[in-house]
Design a protein around this nucleic acid. Structure first.
Length: 221
DNA sequence: GCACCGATGTGCT
DNA sequence: GCACATCGGTGCC
C-alpha cells in the first residue's frame, strides 16, 4: 500500500504554538525546496527557539522592521534574513500574527537532491564538502537548499509553495524524545542562559557549539 | 580537533 | 561606527 504519510505537509496548527514547544517537534521533520534547478530535501537535526519581543537574542526584540516583518505575521511562513554580509539563515515563524516568535533552522541531513546540494556548497576553490557538512550550520543549510531572501515569507504549509515543511520519515523522534538534547543557543550573547537549542543526539550533521564570536579586539598594534 | 581572522550588508546606537 | 542567530581558509596540535 502507499505511504502518503511520509510526505504529509506539516499542519499549520503544529506551528501555531510557542516556539520553545515547536522547536523540538521540528527535529526529524523535512524541509524541501523545489527550485528550477531541482529539489533538495533536508531532515532537520538542530534548531533554536527565539521568543520574539521578550527575547533579547531575537531579531524581533526591538520591534518590527522591514527585515523582520514576516516574524510578526501568521505561523508557518519562512523568515529568511541576510547576515554577516554574505550569509542567509531561515526560521519557521510560530504563533499567530502579532507575536514574533520563530525557530531558527541550524542544521540538517540532506536526504534528497544530494548532488545539487553538493554543487551549491562546493566552494569557489572547488572543495567538495563531506556529506555531513552539506547542511551543518544555518548558513550552510540555506546554501545547500538554495534559500535566499526571495523566499522570505514563503508559506511552508502550502502544497504549491516551492519551500515546504513535511512530517519526518520515521526517526528517533517517533520512538520518543529521549534522543533530543538541549543546551544554550549558539553565537548569542544576550539570552545565552536559556537552553533553547535542540538537537538529535548522535547526529553528525549537528553544528558545533560556539559560545559567542570572538570579539573584534582592536589591537593597538 | 581548536584559535584566529577576514569578508561584508543590515539594523541600531 | 559597531555589532551581528556565520563561514572558509590558514596555522597549529
Amino acid at each position: 500500500m502507499a505511504e502518503p504519510e511520509l510526505t504529509d505537509l506539516l499542519p499549520r496548527d503544529v506551528l501555531d504554538r510557542p516556539s520553545t514547544e515547536v522547536a523540538p517537534d521540528l527535529l526529524g521533520c523535512v524541509l524541501e525546496h523545489e527550485s528550477p534547478d531541482g529539489l533538495v530535501a533536508v531532515m532537520l537535526t538542530e534548531v533554536e527557539a527565539y521568543t520574539g519581543q521578550t527575547d533579547p537574542a531575537s531579531h524581533a526584540y526591538r520591534g518590527r522592521t522591514a527585515r523582520n516583518a514576516v516574524m510578526f505575521g501568521p505561523a508557518g511562513h519562512a523568515y529568511v534574513y541576510f547576515t554577516y554580509g554574505m550569509h542567509f539563515c531561515v526560521n519557521v515563524v510560530c504563533m499567530p500574527a502579532g507575536t514574533a516568535s520563530a525557530v531558527l533552522l541550524r542544521a540538517g541531513k540532506v536526504i534528497a537532491g544530494e548532488t545539487l546540494a553538493c554543487a551549491r556548497r562546493t566552494s569557489a576553490a572547488g572543495v567538495r564538502p563531506a556529506d555531513r557538512e552539506l547542511a551543518r550550520g544555518p548558513a550552510r543549510l540555506c546554501q545547500a537548499l538554495g534559500i535566499d531572501r526571495g523566499l522570505d515569507g514563503a508559506d511552508l504549509c502550502a502544497a504549491d509553495s516551492e519551500l515546504r515543511l513535511r512530517r519526518g520519515v520515521a526517526t528517533a523522534r517517533s520512538e520518543g524524545k529521549s534522543l533530543i538534547r538541549t543546551g544554550p543557543r549558539v553565537g548569542v550573547r544576550e539570552g545565552a542562559d536559556v537552553p533553547w537549542r535542540f538537537w538529535l543526539d548522535g547526529e553528525p550533521s549537528v553544528s558545533v557549539y560556539r559560545p559567542h564570536p570572538r570579539k573584534t579586539a582592536t589591537s593597538p598594534g
